[in-house]
Write a protein that binds this DNA or RNA. Sequence first.
DNA 1: CCGACAACCTGTGAGC
DNA 2: TGCTCACAGGTTGTCG
Length: 275
Amino acid sequence: MPELPEVETTRRGLAPHVLNQSIHAVVVRNPALRWPIPATLDKHLPGGRIARSERRAKYLLLRIEHPRHSGWLILHLGMSGSLRVLDADTPAGVHDHFDLVLDNGQALRLRDPRRFGAVLWVAGDVPSHPLLNHLGVEPLSEEFSGDYLYTHTRSRSAAIKLVLMDAHLVVGVGNIYANEALFEAGINPKLPARRLGPARCARLVEAIKHTLARSIEAGGSSLRDFVGADGEPGYFQQQYFVYGRTGAPCRKCKQAIRQIRQGQRSTFYCPHCQR
DNA sequence: CCGACAACCTGTGAGC
DNA sequence: TGCTCACAGGTTGTCG
C-alpha cells in the first residue's frame, strides 16, 4: 500500500500518540523482514523516549532519547506494511511482527504480510545509514525543481517514468504517482528522459508535487483510523486518472487508457493526452 | 555511470 | 467450488 503520501499520513497520525512516550519493551514475533530485525533493539530501546518523528523518502524515523544510547529507529513499510497504535494486550495477528510497547500501556504495532518492510537501528545523532545515504532529493522540497530534473536527465536515455522512480534522483515517487503525475503533465511515460526540455521538466515537477501534496491532504481526513483495536488503517480512496484504469475512458478525452510494462511494473497512460 | 532483470514474500482475483 | 497463475503500492543487488 504505502507510497510517500501514505507514509507521511502514517507519520502524522502516529505522532500525537507516540511522541514523548517512553518505551517499556520491544516485542519481535518474526524478525525475518527485508533485513533481520536487530536483536540489539532489546538493549537500546527500553528506557528510551520517542522524541521526534521524521520521514526521509519512505522511511519513517523515530528519534529515541536514551540516557546511555540514543539513536534512530528506522521503519519501512515495504509493499504491504502498516502501523497502528493500540492497547499493548491486543492479541497479535499472524502478520503482526513487531511491537514497540509504551509505558502508557499502548503499543506501536507493525503489520506486514509480505515482509518487504524493515525495522532497523542506527546509533547517534543523525539518521545516517547505508540505506539513507545515497538517496536523492525529497520531491516536496525546493531542491526538486524543473532545473534539477532537467540538469539530471541530460544523459538519461531511459524512459522518463523509470527515471522518475529512480531513488538516486528523487525519492518517494512510486508507481501510482509516477503514472498520475505523467498524466497530469501530459507526458508519454515511454519518452526518453533526455528528450524532455526545460518547460516539460518544470511542468512534470509541478505535477509530481501537486499529486503527492493532494494525496497527503486527503489522507489527513482519515487520520483517526490509524488508531484502533483492529482493521487496516483507513487509507483514503483516491480517484485516479490512469492508474489501474486499463481500457476505461480517459477522464479528459474519453480515449481508452492503455497498460504497458516498463521495468517489470505496470504503466498506465492515455495515448491521446500524453505525448 | 547506465540499464535490465532477478530476488525477497504472501495475498488476492481472474480464469478455467 | 477449487485449482493455478499472474500480479501487487518497494528496494537491493548483480550482471553486462
